[in-house]
Design a protein around this nucleic acid. Sequence first.
DNA 1: TCAGCTTTATGAATGATATTCATTTCTACC
DNA 2: GGTAGAAATGAATATCATTCATAAAGCTGA
Lengths: 219, 219
Amino acid sequence: MPANRTSKKEIKRESIIQAAIEVFSKKGFQAATVSEIAERAGVADGSIYQYFKNKEDLFFSIPVEKTKEFRTQLELHLEGISGAFNKIRKFVWYFLYFFTVSPEYGRLLMLEMRVSKSFVKTDTYDFLKQSVSSVLEIITEGQHEGVVRTDTDIYILRHLVLGTLEHIVSRWLLKDGKYDLLRHHQEVSRLIIDALRNPACPGAAPDGTPVKAGPTGEI
Amino acid sequence: MPANRTSKKEIKRESIIQAAIEVFSKKGFQAATVSEIAERAGVADGSIYQYFKNKEDLFFSIPVEKTKEFRTQLELHLEGISGAFNKIRKFVWYFLYFFTVSPEYGRLLMLEMRVSKSFVKTDTYDFLKQSVSSVLEIITEGQHEGVVRTDTDIYILRHLVLGTLEHIVSRWLLKDGKYDLLRHHQEVSRLIIDALRNPACPGAAPDGTPVKAGPTGEI
DNA sequence: TCAGCTTTATGAATGATATTCATTTCTACC
DNA sequence: GGTAGAAATGAATATCATTCATAAAGCTGA
């Protein structure tokens, strides 16, 4: 295909995605209609299907750009920060900050896509997962530093970090962002770090508290 | 209305809900059709609307019974256990156990309802929230015992506990329950407890590690 | 510039399905 | 057994997502 035609197609595709973002953000997946998206993009209903397999496929194309943005901005924010716990603090802050600035997108991602079986099969999801999983890198870095516990599967540590953050963001979105999402970011970091902290690491725990063994594994 | 007729209505309502559980579990909210539910319940399509405002209303009626079951069983399991951390361990185990035994229901609750704005407005949701929030009671109990930190908003502590657990369960459901959800329950409890633990409580931390102050609040 | 071919765009037609509503059937009570 | 009010019915309606036959536009080589 000629290059000229390709770029025109690309532009049209983009304008459809842009219209889709607006309409889906306003109405959610269900209530949004393909006709409205087509109208807003200035194309016929049928044309959408030249670019996307179906309504869902169009919906799932939205996160691609946003995820790239998340990833590059996060890298920028982590730049120059050393120490796994300092990076965790920054990650927590950035995660909450990101959704503070993009609540409409957050609604789509957190409340509609993240929870869909077909989305999980998507390439977009893999990309997203990989981006968010910089936590995993921070965790292993912390283990090498000796400050992060090595007695627990790192994927469980990730569940704790992302689970806590996603829960906070989801509940906030469900309440229409009626309060400041960032207001407790320091407490959240502190909590997460205390969970990740290596219990055997001298000098890592706070407040000079004397400590002793406790039972684990009891249900 | 005569009592006899009332109970007949109640029975029919139940049979519709039962049919709804089966069909929604098998196909999810979207793909399930009102006709199939009606057929399985042995009523006409239109009859559904005598009992429920619409398809969504019917859907959201499902958790009522299941939530009661969750709540009473949890109370039973906590019976006789003392100490906030022991209760947390039991809660973690029971939470994972519950979804292990009811994965189809879990899929509906965790992946479809929990994330819906209209569900959150529901009475059912309030009831559910209240049931799950026995964590809150355990947390304050632990604060009175002196073992749970008091430097952090208890709602944030709840975000950590429920966020971690719901994340674990959601990801498991999205992977079609292909592994044993309970296999890591002890690690999960340990992690959560280490996050909740009062950093100033002598004798609470593990392993006799000497500890000292660390910075908090830095991003 | 144009003929011939390919790609893209179109929107009316199709099919699926939630919901409504005029009509029928049932139930309780006299 | 007659009747009023409740409940049940399912055909009709309205709302989309998606398809597809047809038209328009883009490209190429002369």
